[in-house]
Write a protein that binds this DNA or RNA. Structure first.
Lengths: 298, 298
DNA sequence: TTAAAAAATCATTTCCGGTGATAGAAGCAC
DNA sequence: GTGCTTCTATCACCGGAAATGATTTTTTAA
């Protein structure tokens, strides 16, 4: 049974004649006859009484319900893939905690307003986890800190971040090696890009086996840093969000380590859904580095 | 876009591989590849990432929803036409008032119990109207009094009826011509088979231009006959139903006129829906004439 | 690196959807 | 009834594409 046959059958019922259906579908009458006959032989039932206008038999009536639904779904599906089609369905996003807290609320609110039919699912995790999820088709796109994620993934920069060292007390300068040796760090679990920065920072200063506490929650990290438990490395923009609630002091990291770009990881553009398409279009261009303000370096 | 392609696409997603899908659908792997590629080129999007197991892209995910629904509808449609399939949908029946009152309650109750998915629509009317409705595809089947209804309709006898003359007072014998001349008759509007019998009965007795009151309701006819307004011709079985409520007396008509068969009119059996099929199977064989009891000829 | 598995490619066959012309059936006017 | 019109069925044919089997290339796992 071909969708084409159902489409023709439906047209015959709607127009009331084989010839009229042929004209409407821009084909010839003999073709209409052939399709209807094929359906009738496949189903083993007379579907139409050849009169003027055509009479739909009980069996034909049964098929008609299916024909209408199938053809309609078919047309919908095609429309959904035509460029400019209204996006529909779920958009499954992933994000690092820090990006989710700072950048996504505005983005997702605007997206949801603009495309009411789109239902957004957001999952947070480390860059490593999220990239793997995109690769495995479990996420449509993810905000991660990465410069390379294999051939299969397309990375598009969206946010510039400056990483800062966060502490409970003012840091006039980078602590000396001796102090770093006995200072614990607070970070997300393995896979977080910023954690890697901590490790690089300390390795640069020849601090072996640093003590790193793994927290699963951004709030917990910030809270504990503020309470004097240790230091953390976070984007400046994230720290700003917590200044109301916590007493925090920051020190910018050197540009080589501290200037990071948040990218969106997706499969190749050819595999995007309509919803992902409009989402990617809604993303901002990342500001050039010199324009990224290093806010209060309190 | 072919249903076959959607079926193959779905199988690939479900099995996680092109080869496995080919095996499941009893075809070859290159054919699976060709179908998926065709879909991808038609829709202008990558649907699957060729890995092990296959990864569904966001665009593929979108199509998958449609594919599942369309293939499912397709399978349902085929199942519905396969002999022995569960009947579903509406069964649109027509019936003369008299048959509806006497014979249908039992039949339809049993049918509805046996096939809960079947929704029965019943419309009453004269034999003429109903036959035309079946011809026009507005009814699946109709109980009518007719011996011939054109080539297109199949007639199947189901009930034997004996027509009786109904009156308010006992009728020892057929009234004399003089009395018939001044007696009004009560009948359904033009198109009712039994009304034709009245006309034949009176014509036989050379009663010209009989007075016939046209009523649209069986109850009204019986009630008015009982009140002495005039005579009526009805099936004996129908009159029995009203004996509790009305004082009625009956006189059997001569067999030539009075022995009538109620038939079910349908389009040819090849055009029956599954629901009509089981309905027709549920109909009784008509009793032979000699077995039809002429009940109390009170 | 190698071996095994899976998908892509290709040549070939087969089948079928689409076309146009024609024949036949049904409806309508006279 | 006759003739005219309209509609559907039939037929032969073309072209495209679905299916097949063999082979190559890619991917994955050991």
């Amino acid at each position: 049974m071909l969708i084409r046959s159902l489409e023709i059958f439906r047209a015959v019922v709607d127009t009331g004649s084989f010839s009229a259906a042929a004209e409407r579908l821009h084909t010839v009458q003999s073709n209409v006859t052939a399709h209807v006959k094929k359906l009738e032989s496949e189903l083993g039932a007379h579907l139409l009484e050849r009169r003027s206008p055509v009479v739909v038999t009980p069996a034909g009536r049964q098929l008609l319900g299916y024909a209408r639904r199938i053809v309609e779904l078919h047309d919908d599906a095609l429309a959904r893939f035509r460029p400019g089609g209204e996006p529909l369905g779920e958009l499954r996003l992933g994000s690092m905690e820090t990006t989710a807290a700072v950048h996504l609320p505005g983005l997702l609110t605007a997206l949801s307003r603009r495309w009411p039919q789109l239902s957004v699912h957001l999952r947070t995790g480390t860059s490593g986890e999220l990239i793997e999820a995109v690769r495995a088709g479990q996420l449509d796109a993810a905000f991660v800190a990465a410069e390379d994620a294999g051939d299969e993934l397309a990375l598009r920069p969206v946010f510039r971040e400056r990483l800062v060292l966060v502490s409970a007390r003012p840091l006039p300068a980078m602590p000396a090696r001796a102090e770093l040796l006995r200072t614990p760090f607070l970070a997300f679990r393995q896979g977080c890009g910023y954690r890697r920065t901590i490790e690089l920072l300390l390795a640069e200063r020849r601090v072996p086996a640093p003590r790193i506490h793994e927290f699963g929650s951004l709030d917990a990290i910030v809270g504990c840093v503020s309470a004097g438990m240790g230091l953390a490395v976070l984007p400046a923009s994230t720290v700003e969000q917590y200044r109301q609630r916590f007493e925090l002091h920051t020190l910018p990291l050197p540009a080589a380590l501290g200037d990071v770009t948040t990218v969106v990881a997706t499969l190749s553009a050819a595999s995007w859904s309509q919803g992902l398409e409009v989402f990617m279009e809604s993303l901002p261009e990342p500001a050039p580095w010199d324009a990224a303000p290093a806010r209060r370096a309190g």
